[in-house]
Amino acid sequence: MPDNEGLMDRFVDRLPETAFFKFVAARILTPLWAWWTPVKPLPGGPHPSFQHGDNVQCMMNLIMPLKDKSPVGRAHAAMAISQHKDAIFAGLNNVGTVHFARFVIVGDNICMFSVYDGDFTNYIRDFIATIGEVFDAVVGLVEGGEKVIPCDKNVEAFIQWVHERDLYQVPDTPTDFLRDQERLNGDKAVAPVNDDLTLLPRKMVLQLRANANVSLGSGYRAYPGYSVAQVRKQLGLGW
């Protein structure tokens, strides 16, 4: 039997490279798995941590599908940002905990990518308090956005809405990914055998089906562990 298992292992190991298997995996197997063992999308944003270093330079990758999926719709989004650029920058400055923030249009999505210090909800709440009306102008162009504006009257719902559009941050190691998955399901057991880390873990495939856009790894930082204010103070820029 051991010999047979080895043969079978080798056969299975080669399978993923075959065109037939790729077709079966993408079109049949994955939907079947997803139906058989539904996977909840993992929540977005940084992983909760108590370590100081993990709580500065956190990343937000916000992807918001535009209502108007046409060049005109994308132009409206571009206009909304450019018209409010000064207010947005002043607001970010007042929030005080933002390292970088960029607005990008990718496909029919308006995206905001930023790096901030501290707790996510505090960041968004302070942002609303500073320039809520600008958020309203942008979010009004986004699918589902009308439910949470004006944001200063829907603070909790707005923060939740933003959180739900913040990309899941896939951990650097597959084991941490499986840990996230198990936590979400309330599982305490270790990963079962079908999550062999030498292969593509099934849960990873299903998660990427549920969460088509994700952020990979923890990202590179040139000066990890420092807050905006620490950098600005050191550079003599005021904080």
Binding site: H52, V56, T97, D117, G118, D119, N122, Q230, W239
Partner: peptide, 21 residues
């Protein structure tokens, strides 16, 4: 916005002042 914001950013990270972060 109050108890948790104070606890996580101020009491235990010291984000409010670069000299204590």
């Amino acid at each position: 916005a109050q108890f948790e914001a104070m606890s996580c950013d101020w009491l235990n990270l010291g984000l409010q002042d670069p000299r204590i972060t």
